[in-house]
């Protein structure tokens, strides 16, 4: 038996909105410690990794490790039927090919139940090692979203460069070019407005803006985002989910032919 109740059901809605343009099907890998999802886009250049600890759910019950394969289209349709302040309970019995969703309003007056057929999804799992990044930049998530949106008006690619002077985003195309510099903030009122730059080594990488714009669909999940960069390695974009989980996106850099 698997059962997990998320008090803030809107978090699930936001998670699905954040990935539905990148992947079509997902496997929920459920264990006693929590739920994880790993999925790649069809081009195999970006990967989504969601990790949700069991402590984010009340109750959480997972008697035996179970993998639940779901089509995001169906999931998206069902979850859209929940109100933002509803709790969402996910239930699956062993040996059945359905997953159940129960939505409950805060006062308990309205409950809704939905069922989705499970799918057999062939997914490749990649082992992502703990990486020592050259630079780790934490910034407001809306700021990162804005930069990606603005830069995609100029070109298809964005160059991200971290030096001791800060982080620079640049793009160029037929129309012209643009550069945006961010420096580490000194004094800010709110921690979530802070720009924090950890620099071990200067780093300079190019990425496809199309994917970064997909990743920023996760902005409603968190006020902050972390960019982890390493030379000649995939970028890792992390959105924390409350204090119990995270959504990470990995993207291969563009390289010289």
């Amino acid at each position: 038996m698997f059962e997990a109740r998320l008090i803030q059901g809107s978090v699930l809605k936001k998670m699905i909105d954040a990935i539905k343009d990148i992947v079509t099907d997902i496997n929920l890998d459920c264990s006693s410690t929590g739920i994880s999802v790993q999925a790649m886009d069809s081009g195999h250049v970006c990967l989504v990794l969601i990790e949700l600890g069991s402590d984010g759910f009340e109750p959480y019950r997972c008697d035996r490790n179970i993998t639940l394969g779901l089509g995001l289209k169906a999931l998206s349709v069902v979850v859209r039927c929940a109100n933002n302040d509803d709790s969402i309970t996910i239930k699956a019995q062993e040996g059945t090919d359905n997953i159940n969703f129960v939505f409950e309003s805060p006062n308990g007056e309205k409950t809704s139940q939905f069922e989705i057929k499970l799918m057999d999804i062939d997914s490749e799992h990649l082992g992502i090692p703990d990486t020592e990044y050259d630079s780790v930049v934490k910034m407001p998530s809306h700021e990162f979203q804005r930069i990606c949106r603005d830069m995609s008006q100029l070109g298809d690619s964005i160059v991200v460069a971290c030096t001791k002077d800060g982080i620079q985003f640049s793009a160029s195309g037929d129309m012209g070019s643009g550069k945006i510099n961010l420096r580490q903030s000194s004094l800010v009122d709110k921690e979530e407005d802070q720009i924090n730059i950890e620099l071990n080594d200067p780093v300079h990488l190019t990425f496809a803006l199309r994917y970064l714009n997909y990743f920023t669909k996760a902005t409603p999940l968190s006020p902050t985002v972390t960019l982890s960069l390493k030379a000649e390695s995939p970028l890792c974009v992390t959105y924390p989910i409350g204090d119990f989980g995270s959504m990470k996106f990995f993207l291969a850099p563009k390289i010289d032919d």
């Binding site: 081009g43 490749e124 690619s157 190019t206 995939p234 291969a252 850099p253 563009k254 390289i255």
Partner: peptide, 14 residues
């Protein structure tokens, strides 16, 4: 500058 290698070339398939 348009090549992106698939992630499989960066990370192992365990």
């Amino acid at each position: 500058k348009n090549l992106q290698k698939p992630l499989l070339l960066y990370y192992d398939d365990p």
